[in-house]
Design a binder for these strands. Structure first.
Lengths: 361, 361
DNA sequence: CCCACTACCGTAAACGTTTACAGAGATCGT
DNA sequence: ACGATCTCTGTAAACGTTTACGGTAGTGGG
């Protein structure tokens, strides 16, 4: 592991100057004889270019950072799964940051762009604060934000449309004949919580259904909460016939409680989740879920960033990814399970068909 | 986004030399007056250290790479979730590689260590070839391998013990009174497939159960395969009363088929998976699964690497992580579900309690 | 035979840091 | 009052590349 060879070592051995070595290694026009000598020397020495020195001179690191709130969140992982190959194909390495949704950490990542250890950044903040906006305006490298930023923010931006997503789900439940549709939401002071709550109200109004405070249950975004919240709800509104859950974990908790209470899903109560994670396809009954296109958003973000890294300036762009409803048994029923699911690998979505190719030892 | 300030800019502005600037920024002893001037200048200019130049001089990048076979595999993600915070706490960034289990890609990653863009590497190869071993011997930076390498390979190594894992599961099934225990395995030419198959045979022998070829079904590691394989198995051996599945996906496929065939789980057939992924806790009935300690292995690997990055030379170490059986309803029955699961957040494992804190917009 | 041109190559500067070394003042003991 | 010692600072080299620039040798034309 002694100090590796540099272009100086090669130059010496090949009897040429370091400039020639560099030219050969970069494929610039050079006499055949020189090329041969340099290549031979490089081979013999097992030379590998020093990426750091290269970056210093070229001001390009060929690295891109992805900052996610929570590395345990399947939605972010879905993004990651799409981002990685896009960057790899373009010759960029991926540097991962998990900020645990701590604002200071996110600001820190933004700040560290000044260190120039990456050429660009994809970030998916949970909340967008004033501090975020300031740092974004001053960012020393291109940034793409996954999630909504205020109008007028000069930054590339990939959005989900959870409003339409909720709408899709509520309409679906309505078409199935449900009229007492409850919402189990997360905290209203988060961006997703607020958006989904508002969308639920809107959707009901458009369908001519009355809005009933009793039908709204607020908790957090965990499964345990799903259980507690739904238990409360059932006690309060026994005639509820559908649950719109603000994410898949809550919905899984709901399934647990409904089962324990002897309510059939979907005959008595239909359940819809959000995010369409792997868990939705894996549960029993499989969970109808609104995909907010995490995978697509990741892909779009990566492509936006590459575009900006390649091209010069252009106006910031906003890409909105449409939601999609993955209908499964928790609304469509067991018949669906037996016929549709039995024919397909994953229960009807494409989200987990890459999962677990093989396992290590 | 104009060219940012360097220590030269600061030196000029503060009226001192770049050496002094560097000293101040690194906290080396300096006169108070100078410190003040430099700090002021740095603040006004919004100076941020250039990480690349720093790395070039110090020969340290404060980056570590993690190369996984498949970014979609929950087992690797579990490793990643543990590796990331350990590295972050030690001030290292994480560079992610997904090799798709292509040997050439893995060799490539190993080779690229010579580029010195990272200080070390954690790698989890699916198969370990001659080429791997050669590159490992010649590696230009510390490497930790997750997975087994041949005896005598001079490299830090973190192993699972799938042999004991299978043993745990089979013993558990035996204690539950099962005597016709089948094995649904993946390809025998993979390291995990071979190890698990052999372990199954051994476990039966030790329990005094006869080995029956009919009870072994080979497929791949996907859920679809799980369905097909188990359907075949049921047709061939109707009196089977337990399934030992080589991973969770296969086991989920098994649950699908058993349900469709009207067999009760676990009353008629008990089912065990392996890897103890999030899916195991999410399914219904929840799946008993053998954890091979992906999370622990990730953590151990990160710690081994840090140790080597900090300390000088030491003999390569081998760490073996013991397996653990997570008993859930697919063997312990509905009683378990109602009592145990209802009390706990996640259905009895600790693998998904960090999942999906909140969701983006 | 000289000039212009081409093709190739070497010298040296630059990227932005860190750090060894030595010089300049200040302080101290005698 | 003078050298010794100490504290602080600046100069310059180094890390390993890329690349602008100029030089040299060879070729062909006039």
């Amino acid at each position: 592991m002694a100090d590796g060879p540099t272009i100086n070592t090669i130059a010496e051995r090949a009897g040429v100057s370091i400039a020639s070595v560099s030219r050969v290694l970069n494929g610039l026009p050079t006499r055949q004889e020189t090329v041969r000598k340099v290549m031979a020397a490089a081979d013999e020495l097992g030379y590998v270019r020093n990426a750091v020195a290269r970056s210093l001179k070229s001001r390009r690191t060929h690295q891109v950072a992805f900052a996610m709130a929570d590395i345990g969140n399947p939605a972010y992982l879905a993004m990651l799964r799409e981002i990685q190959p896009v960057l790899k194909a373009a010759g960029y390495r991926l540097v991962l940051h998990s900020t645990d949704a701590v604002v200071a950490d996110e600001i820190d990542v933004l700040h560290s762009l000044g260190e120039r250890y990456v050429d660009g950044l994809i970030m998916s903040p949970l909340r967008v604060t004033e501090a975020h906006l300031e740092m974004l305006a001053a960012a020393r490298a291109p940034v793409v934000i996954i999630g909504s930023v205020p109008e007028g923010t000069r930054v590339d931006n990939v959005r989900a449309d959870s409003r339409t997503g909720v709408r899709l789900a509520v309409d679906h439940l309505y078409e199935l004949g449900r009229r007492r549709i409850a919402m189990v939401n997360g905290p209203l002071d988060t961006v997703p919580g607020a958006a989904r709550g508002a969308a639920y109200r809107e959707a009901l109004a458009d369908l001519g259904l009355p809005y009933d405070d009793d039908l709204v249950q607020i908790g957090d975004f965990y499964r345990r909460q799903g259980r507690g919240a739904v238990a409360d709800l059932l006690a309060r509104v026994p005639d509820v016939d559908a649950l719109m859950c603000a994410n898949d974990l809550i919905a899984l908790g709901a399934l647990d409680v409904l089962r324990a209470a002897g309510r059939r899903v979907p005959e008595d109560v239909a359940v819809v989740g959000m995010d369409d994670t792997d868990l939705a396809a894996a549960s029993w009954p499989s969970l109808t879920s609104v995909s907010l296109g995490s995978a697509e958003r990741g892909k779009a973000a990566a492509e936006l960033l590459l575009e900006r890294l390649r091209g010069g300036d252009r106006e910031p762009r906003v890409v909105t990814v449409p939601p999609r409803l993955s209908v499964r048994a928790s609304t469509a029923g067991a018949e669906y399970e037996r016929t549709y699911r039995a024919r397909t690998e994953t229960g009807g979505t494409r989200t987990d068909n890459k999962a677990s190719k093989e396992n290590e030892e």
